[in-house]
Simulated assay, not measured.
Amino acid sequence: MLVVVSDTHAREESRLQGRTAEAVREADTVIHAGDFYREPVLDAFEAAADTLRAVYGNNDDAAVRDRVPEVRTVEYGGVRFAVTHRHRSGDTGLTMLGRGRDADAVICGHSHRPRFDDSGGLPILNPGSHAQPRGNRAAHAELTPNGDGRGLAGKLVTPAGESFETFRIEGGNAE
């Protein structure tokens, strides 16, 4: 399972609770789409996740920025993701970033609003914030291979374990 989280905004701990904590511990790979805030939070995620693939966000301190990139490409289950915290040009910029990385989908954070949008050029997944939802539903994303080796079934899930949106991402660019 691939788990996607973002926007922790903490000083010392991961602030993982309930299903989000379980999912991170169970995951094959965890993607954090930025805004850990302080380096001990990054350390806590590395301790909780077997494989962490992270990017830094606009609120991350210099120590976090020294350890993780601003943008990265992650492949999982036959799907290639371009991962960043945000793009100043919104969804258009995110789509261009994904195309430039030959991605099947883009993962971002920043807004604290969980959403999956496949109406544009590339699917865009924002897991929201598990720890500081800022008026939105607290959430993370869980994705599992479809079994055909070319796509993932996904869902947005609250820390209480409620799944409130499902989606599918097709692979094809990843080798």
Results as ranks from 00 to 15, higher is better:
Pro123Arg: 10
Leu2Lys: 14
Val24Phe: 07
Glu175Thr: 12
Lys155Ala: 13
Arg80Leu: 06
Arg86Ala: 08
Asp104Ile: 14
Ala47Trp: 07
Ile31Met: 11
Ala21Gly: 11
Val74Leu: 08
Asp104Pro: 05
Met96His: 14
Asp117Tyr: 09
Gly120Met: 12
Thr8Lys: 04
Thr51Gly: 12
Ala23Gly: 00
Met96Pro: 03
Ser163Met: 09
Arg19Ser: 07
Pro69Gly: 10
Met1Ser: 11
Ala33Met: 12
Val106Cys: 05
Arg99Thr: 07
Ala47Phe: 05
Asp102Thr: 07
Arg53Trp: 06
Ile169Pro: 00
Ser163Trp: 02
Thr51Gln: 15
Gly57Asp: 09
Gly154Gln: 03
Arg15Glu: 03
Gly109Leu: 15
Ala44His: 11
Gly98Gln: 02
Thr95Met: 12
Glu170Arg: 14
Gly149Thr: 13
Arg99Pro: 03
Phe45Pro: 02
Arg168Glu: 14
Leu97Lys: 02
Leu2Phe: 02
Pro40Arg: 08
Asp7Cys: 10
Leu52His: 02
Glu162Tyr: 10
Arg15Gly: 01
Ser14Asn: 07
Ala131Glu: 04
Ala27Phe: 02
Gly172Asn: 05
His9Trp: 11
Arg88Tyr: 13
Cys108Ile: 03
Glu142Ala: 03
Gly34Ser: 06
Arg86Glu: 09
Ser111Arg: 00
Leu52Asn: 09
Val83Trp: 08
Val74Cys: 08
His87Trp: 02
Leu156Tyr: 06
Val24Gly: 06
Pro114Val: 01
Pro127Lys: 11
Gly154Thr: 03
Leu122Tyr: 03
Gly172Glu: 09
Glu22Trp: 00
Ile124Lys: 03
Ala82Trp: 04
Phe116Asp: 13
Pro159Met: 08
Asp148Thr: 13
Val4Glu: 06
Pro114Cys: 08
Gly120Tyr: 07
Gly78Ala: 07
Gln132Val: 05
Thr158Gln: 04
Glu70Phe: 06
Asn136Arg: 13
Leu94Ile: 01
Ala63Thr: 11
Leu122Pro: 01
Gln132Ala: 12
Glu162Asp: 15
Glu13Pro: 03
Ala82Asn: 03
Ala153His: 14
Phe81Arg: 05
Asp7His: 15
Arg113Asp: 12
Ala48Gln: 08
Gly135Phe: 06
Lys155Met: 07
Thr73Met: 05
Asp91Met: 02
Ile169Phe: 03
Ala47Glu: 15
Val3Asp: 10
Gly161Ser: 04
Phe81Asp: 13
Glu39Thr: 05
Ala44Lys: 02
Lys155Cys: 09
Arg115Glu: 15
Cys108Gln: 12
Val41Arg: 14
Gly171Arg: 03
Ala21Met: 09
Ala105Phe: 02
Asp102His: 10
Gly128Cys: 05
Thr20Asn: 01
Val24Met: 11
Leu2Arg: 08
Glu175Arg: 14
Glu165Pro: 01
Tyr56Met: 10
His32Ile: 14
Gly151Cys: 08
Val3Cys: 07
Thr158Gly: 04
Val74His: 11
Ala54Pro: 04
Leu156Arg: 05
Val83Gly: 07
Val157Thr: 14
Gly135Arg: 05
His32Met: 09
Ala153Arg: 14
Val106Pro: 05
Asp118Met: 12
